[in-house]
Design a protein around this nucleic acid. Sequence first.
DNA 1: GAATATACTGTGTATATCGACACTATTCAA
DNA 2: TTGAATAGTGTCGATATACACAGTATATTC
Lengths: 203, 203
Amino acid sequence: MSAGLTPKQQEIFKFLCNHVREHGFPPSYEEIAEQFGFASPNAVTGHLKALERKGHIRRSEKSRALEITDPSFRQSGIPIIGTVAAGTPILAIENREGMLSIEDLVGNSEGLFALRVRGESMVGAGINPGDYVIVRPAPMVESGQIGVAFLDGEATIKRIYKESTGWRLQPENSGMQPIWVSKDDATFWVGGKVVGVVRKIQV
Amino acid sequence: MSAGLTPKQQEIFKFLCNHVREHGFPPSYEEIAEQFGFASPNAVTGHLKALERKGHIRRSEKSRALEITDPSFRQSGIPIIGTVAAGTPILAIENREGMLSIEDLVGNSEGLFALRVRGESMVGAGINPGDYVIVRPAPMVESGQIGVAFLDGEATIKRIYKESTGWRLQPENSGMQPIWVSKDDATFWVGGKVVGVVRKIQV
DNA sequence: GAATATACTGTGTATATCGACACTATTCAA
DNA sequence: TTGAATAGTGTCGATATACACAGTATATTC
């Protein structure tokens, strides 16, 4: 990232980014000068002008109203590289199809929560122990969808089917049996619908 | 979020958050006053003092050095709710174990990229078609690890084993056979190691 | 060899910005 | 009904801040 910048400019640009990430506002010229040991805050001006000219920031005459325009700063995610044509340098940025982030993936993340999976009851659906399932809270899911079911205070991930007598909690594991829940079982309730799965593969 | 705030304070807090998210720096008192139609920028002071007293922001006598301390703002991710004890209100914020984001999950996201999975060759490892695999670029993986293998310009996800004559690309699907690659096959190279899997479950 | 970009020091200025002080009005709980 | 919190208007001062101007020095490019 940050092509065409001198080492010093890169350092300063990095400091800007880190400061904004950490505090939510950019440093003043004086603070930048202090950080880099400049005697004059004006030494910063030149660097910032260079950064602006090269399109990484937008300055403002107002106080601390510096904006980082470099798109690589904003995008918090991982580039999605799609179809790979023969001979194309796959790691080149031009092949991007988009960015992958959990927020993008499951839409509005407001109210979502995650649960770590403990059992093996859903391996048939590609949900393994240690995975995180992302749950959108809802009082019930449509029949056949994967949801979080609470039974006797314990949470389980299951495919939930509506039956005439109540609900069927269906594991996706050939070695496990479904659980039938009666309509008037007060200990049963649905926490929400599983809208995503995230797994970290250990090194 | 933002409990204990009056409607007006919530509005202003929301404006603060959006401004920081959008521009990377907070608005000045004057800009807030303009936004809400106040004749005096000083009308803002009272609100900000209230927000500070209630612990959502930290003010500073310096220009535009207002910091949003409310943790619900900073964390861009999804709360991880762990073990669920009986009777505990699961959706309460107090039960948080942490936050889930792709960056946290796989560590430093610098250089990572994602690929959409097309085949069924890794369903045994919980990697299904349509999933995204997150890849850390590397010229080779340790024997037995899951990696992205390029062969004749086509990318595949496989478990890669080092053999005496070359490499074995092992699918995790009982119906599929491994691929043996000779040591001097120039069309073969490894793109990186699969460090994560992300799946969106359609509604 | 001249022009240009980089990398600073040092001084000064216009203004952006926050904060204090003085006041008014309303709502809500003790 | 008294106090406190909320929700403002309006004025003024102290200072934080960016920026212009005047220099110096080095490296790179043409």
